[in-house]
Amino acid sequence: MNLNVASFGKYIWNSQSLAGYGYQQVRNKWANWLMIRDVKRRRMSAENFLERTRINAMRRNDVLPVEIRELADKDINKFEMNAIPLRINNRCAVTSRPRGIVKEWRLSRIVWRHLADYNKLSGVQRAMWG
């Protein structure tokens, strides 16, 4: 019973769809719904990655007979659209800004600059010349 309750709590915490709807409002770790959508796409593409790449490999060659490739074409359409990795959008992990991302830190340039100013990023040094 207690375990069930605990797992239910975890479910509420981890699922974006429940947060703020029907239940007590939950403050989660995502900045806005665009970020939540992106997280969902990332999760789904990660879940379906192996199968999708295998089927895709059968589609994208001229070795296998055409019938098999057509079958693979059909199979790949059975996946959800959000499982397509192409839909993943790089966003700032803090502010969910879609542009100006410093890729290695997955932060927008503004957040990155702010942290760097306060010496919060290891290995980042202010440029000095002249």
Partner: peptide, 15 residues
């Protein structure tokens, strides 16, 4: 597993 599930089609094609 995938190719074995499609055995009929593959034999028909001759692959």
């Amino acid at each position: 597993d995938y190719f074995e599930s499609k055995k009929d089609l593959l034999t028909e094609v001759g692959a």
